[in-house]
Nucleic acid binder design. Structure first.
Length: 425
DNA sequence: GCTTTGTTTCCTGATT
DNA sequence: CAATCAGGAAACAAAG
């Protein structure tokens, strides 16, 4: 007699992993500084791993800055935690970009922290000696710092930071300026009328921007009214702008904080073709389950597996370079973990069943799936799909099965950072 | 350009 | 009966 799947696969309730490291966060001597913003206080009171966790959490806010703020951030602080609103053509510019994908001039505070953390780890520097309040600066501020200033703040690490900063400035400086000018030229070619906007409402002056050649760092001053720009460029579908600054990834409008109202949906964000893509690439459509000529609408059974994405040239092809996949380092299990260790961010979505054992439960499974989909800019994410991805973690021992309990999972030995104390929470 | 990785999508069938 | 679980299959895109 062949055992059922349930009997074959259930009953693996192993104990939690004892080898998981527990890191005690080093308190910052400035943690009680009343002047610091609350978000900075959080960062300042944690060690660098905590900073990374906090920074990673900020990444998850991509789609919904209103609902996923850091624990203590007020709406007015949002822009300090989000990617810059500046018009750039920085290489690989996306919604949240790692510091190494952006010119330092465009770094957010988060990028700066990630950069510092990278160097701390690389050089095995003792982070507990750092004044974390001083780490909280955005790219433009960082770029203005002298060698002496960096050394005075970071000590020996400051030397390394300064050298790397010089390299990064050199690497991105000319490129950014060229790219930005190219973009503006293309933009003006496509939308000559946009120049008429200049002066009409006083929002921006592309003419003068195009003529501006004061160096890459000066481009930081070209803060545009992004929703307007997006609105202007929304009709563009085929000219390549989608991978440029009009992309919701390159100009993450939803992350622009107080500068603009929230862009509530993916579909209204111009070239964000995710919504369109999900429609156009909808398997039901792509597979044409019904007769195209309408003579006899017979349902057609869909093949197994994921439908093949339509290639360029197909009438259903939607131009996009956008990936639905998370960048490496932002995995589903980490997303889940961070919901659990930041319950105040999304109360009621998930809960610990057994914190010590790493057992947790989905309270609002579809809501979590939607949140995950929001992060991945995938509006069609469901708990069913999410749970499939979760089940793949069993094999990799990132998760362990919990028998007979619906919506309950357990972190496995290859999951890290969920243990109490490991992330400073 | 190929391979690997981490999903995403859809499916069938079983269980709760 | 609906929701969920389990896992096969195929596709996709970033990264190596």
């Amino acid at each position: 007699m062949v055992p059922t799947k349930a009997t074959r696969h259930r009953g693996t309730d192993t104990s939690s992993n004892p080898e998981s490291a527990v890191v005690t966060p080093a308190l910052c001597p400035h943690c009680c500084d009343p002047i610091m913003c609350s978000a900075e206080v959080v960062m300042a009171t944690c060690d660098l791993s905590s900073i990374l966790t906090t920074a990673n959490w900020a990444v998850y806010q991509g789609g919904s800055p209103e609902t996923l703020l850091p624990p203590c951030a007020t709406p007015g602080q949002k822009e300090t935690l989000q990617p810059s609103a500046h018009l750039t053509c920085s290489p690989g510019d996306q919604g949240h970009q790692s510091w190494y994908h952006l010119a330092p001039q465009y770094w957010t505070k988060q990028n700066t922290l990630e950069w510092i953390s990278h160097h701390v780890e690389e050089s095995q520097f003792d982070a507990s000696t750092l004044n974390m309040a001083s780490c909280s600066m955005d790219g433009p501020t960082l770029c203005q710092m002298s060698h002496q200033a960096l050394v005075s703040i970071f000590g020996l690490l400051g030397e390394q930071l300064f050298q790397n900063l010089l390299e990064l400035k050199a690497k991105y400086g000319a490129y950014d300026l060229t790219m930005t000018c190219d973009f503006l030229n293309n933009l003006l070619d496509e939308f000559p009328e946009i120049l008429n906007v200049n002066g009409a409402d006083g929002i921006y002056d592309l003419g003068s921007v195009a003529e501006h050649s004061g160096g890459a760092s000066d481009l930081n001053t070209f803060t545009l009214d992004k929703p307007k720009m997006m609105g202007e460029m929304t009709p563009v579908s085929d000219n390549g702008y989608e991978s440029g600054p009009t992309s919701p990834d390159s100009l993450d409008f939803s992350n622009a904080g107080v500068l603009l109202p929230k862009v509530p949906t993916f579909s209204d964000s111009g070239s964000d073709s995710e919504q369109d893509l999900s429609d156009a690439s909808c398997p039901r459509t792509a597979y044409e389950p019904f007769a195209a000529d309408g003579e006899e609408l017979k349902p057609c059974k869909r093949g197994r597996g994921r439908p093949r994405k339509l290639k360029q040239g197909s009438e259903h092809y939607v131009h996009t370079k956008r990936s639905k996949h998370a960048p490496r380092g932002t995995h589903l299990w980490e997303f889940i973990r961070d919901i659990l260790i930041h319950p105040e961010q999304n109360p009621g979505l998930m809960k610990w069943e057994d914190r010590h054992q790493g057992v947790f439960k989905f309270l609002k499974s579809e809501a979590v799936a939607q949140l995950w989909g929001q992060k991945k800019r995938n509006t069609s994410m469901t708990y069913e799909k999410l749970s499939r991805a979760m089940r793949y973690y069993y094999k990799r021992e990132i998760l362990e099965r919990v028998d007979g309990r619906r919506l309950v999972y357990k972190f496995g030995k290859n999951a890290s950072g969920w243990q109490q104390g490991a992330s400073g929470f």
